[in-house]
Design a protein around this nucleic acid. Structure first.
Lengths: 152, 152
DNA sequence: GTCCGATACGTGTATATACTCTCATTAAGA
DNA sequence: TCTTAATGAGAGTATATACACGTATCGGAC
């Protein structure tokens, strides 16, 4: 006899589930990342790794701390992700002038990987655009970027 | 002598990084989930666990498979998350009539936790609304929900 | 009634993520 | 200059996530 528990209004529960920003964002992130991961799988990298490599291609020789800040992730998270990329030979970690710092740079192999990955990225992104419309996607992106700018 | 590598146009690289749907979604998901996690921390749960519990409050006695589908996550992921919640005494796992299935249900403790967590959720969500505006947030949510509906 | 493909789970493995604590190094102050 | 506070990384631990594989069960074909 499962006590029909009336303490939480089912309509309220449904409304919370449907409108939760956190839940919907995580779900979208999972689903969209999955699409990119599938595309990247032929290259042996994941979308997260692509993001770190792109960040490294732009901010050459950034420290772990600065790159983590730019990517909006925890220092220790990036530290581990970077080691994984280093073990794949795609990036290189080296001491900075300030010897507390570790600087990240792409290796030759890393640049070659990016050259192969960028067309794959473009194709996947284009797929989303044709599915949802460029304008619609821009509306989404602009909101995400505003979130990312303003959240601590 | 780091070969100044000209193979990837820096402007293209920056544009890709800024406009990548996958990257921006993951970053937003991390940042927003962090806000909810902070709020929930006093209760000893995380936003992911809140989502699973809310799903369980709505779809009573759903199987792992069906709940995973509803939450847009992998079966095995939910399987582990559910075990964690069960070890905290918040949900209960039991055999279905089809003995291949495991059904999830909230425990008494779980219902009590939800009663405490919902006001915390409401406060956090309201904080986002006041920061970004209800209409703006609706625009974001509608797009996320459409993504979640249409992506495989 | 028995066999076989389909189905639902769980486990092993790998990656992503973040918090806490500790260690090394630097910078600032006495 | 010596001491100390601040800073940047990494390791330990915990959770989230998914894929591949194996196991138990079910349902239909015969």
């Amino acid at each position: 006899m499962s006590q029909e528990n009336p303490r939480i209004d089912p309509r309220l529960a449904g409304e919370i589930s449907r409108s939760c920003v956190s839940f919907n964002l995580r779900k979208s992130a999972r689903l969209v990342s999955h699409a990119y991961d599938q595309a990247f799988s032929e290259l042996g990298i994941k979308s997260t790794q692509f993001s770190v490599m792109m960040g490294t291609a732009i901010q050459k020789k950034a420290s772990i701390k600065n790159m983590a800040k730019a990517l909006g992730m925890d220092r220790s998270t990036l530290s581990r992700n970077a080691r994984l990329l280093a073990s794949k030979g795609l990036i290189q970690l080296m001491d900075g002038e300030d010897r507390r710092e570790q600087l990240i740079a792409l290796t030759e192999s890393g640049w070659e990987m990016l050259e192969k990955a960028i067309p794959v990225w473009q194709q996947t992104q284009a797929g989303l655009e044709s599915e949802f419309g460029a304008e619609w996607l821009d509306g989404l992106l602009n909101r995400l970027k505003e979130l990312n700018r303003r959240l601590p």
